[in-house]
Design a protein around this nucleic acid. Sequence first.
RNA 1: GCUCCCAUGGUCUAGCGGCCUAGGACAUCGCCCUUUCAAGGCGGUAACACGGGUUCGAAUCCCGUUGGGAGCGCCA
Length: 488
Amino acid sequence: MNAECGSTVRVRIAPSPTGNCHVGTARTALYNMLYARKYGGKFILRIDDTDLSRSTKESEEGVLEGLRWLGIKWDEGPDVGGPYGPYRQMERAYTYREVADRLMAEGKAYRCYCTPEELEAERREALAVGKPPRYYGKCRNLAPEECAKLEAEGRKHVIRLRAPDKILTFVDLLRGHQQKDMGERGDFVIVKSDGSPVYNFATVVDEHYMAMTHVFRAVEHLTNTFDQLAVYEAMGWDPPQFGHLTLMLNPDRTKISKRAGAVYIGEFRDMGYLPEALVNFLALLGWNPGTEQEIFSMDELVEAFSVETLSRSDAVFDIKKLDWFNGVYIRSLTPEDLAARVRPFMEKAGYATSDQAFLEKAVTLVTDRLGKLTEAPDMLGFLFVDRVDLARESFAGKGKLTPGDIAGALVECERVLGGLDQWTHEDIEASLRALAESLGWKVGDLLMQVRVAITGRRVTPPLFESLVLLGREKSMARIARATRALEE
RNA sequence: GCUCCCAUGGUCUAGCGGCCUAGGACAUCGCCCUUUCAAGGCGGUAACACGGGUUCGAAUCCCGUUGGGAGCGCCA
């Protein structure tokens, strides 16, 4: 299980260019990268684009962008190159062909002319009598003349590998010894009728030529591994070590999907999550450090990572926990950093944020209150507008204060605040507290009226700091306006 | 249907035969703090899927059952 037996560790992530970076892909990429860093190896990004129809430059870029945003960096890949290219399957087409030809020449693979309809019928028959659906080898021993004849009829063919009639085994890095009797498996397709390689074939060729030493991938590939092993064996190649990771689940324990919420990295970014929070959360979803530490920087993850503590059971993606991590990371940011992260969300909401110093002071008021960056515009908007919307009910709340009571109190507030020499937190607080006492009001009740007058709402950042930031002029104007509104 | 994987509170997990009256975190509830809301502090509720073994002793090992998942594709 130790990585460094002579050769350098080489691990990879091989996403399909679907346009978006899926969280599952991201987590698998993370684990692979952590492993590479931990053992001083290389982490490679390969684009598995054999499904030619969907691949475009943009669809590839979308995936890379998601990974980059999370801070996942690769040593070799289609964008940065490297000594083991190409890094796109499409560009390796010639090699697949060559390998398939060699397998055919050695009698380890053969052409099959069966139609999809025939195969489907065969599968149904097998299932009907309770046998595993498999290809029973109709074209297995076709004579060259027969092939020529079918070819002449215009029949298309695929290439099948002769499944070895023996038990294949490997040691999974997470699950230990695994085996399968390949005698139960029919000969399987390695090259489609259009000449392109099937995934289980292409991936073997890629892993081999890219000199991968370890393959960490989702558990859905566990049983596929045996087909791949058959290819390695037919070619006389040494397979890498495999480790099959868990799946991420929806709350109802089905495989994570769109309908249960966000699944693409870009969506999390747009929802106001910090990449470091998402990474931390993802890392702990399926792996544990063996200690009670919860918060990890990327470097700390590299340090603590270990294959031994990767879990074997699937994990529900609990967004509430992600929210908690996000809050923790937001609170750890400097005002400057927080301001920078919040800025795009403020701009999107239509608030001008060119005054850096002001923005920094503003975000400082809500650092402890932000669960997600998207909440910032709502909390801070009152500092960036000329006037706020006032609703009568906001002042009274559920209490029994009448508009008259409130307007009267606000007039007093205006008077007291207007008489202040300095517009500071201390002076404002002292004067308002004193006023509450002389009025016989509870401090909280009085401050609530000012709060609503200033912000238009009952839930806001701390009042005194907000007044200071808003400035004397605007604050006084808002109180005056609120008074008038209540007196109408 | 066959093969394989998995199984500790609502969720993520620690536990790898006695240290477990099962630990931590999120969520939840209560209290404290408090100018609202948060944040923070303190405390509470809450789990070894079930049934057989093995053993002096099992959450931990074995078998079975149940439940969940994957694969059996000219998808990746």
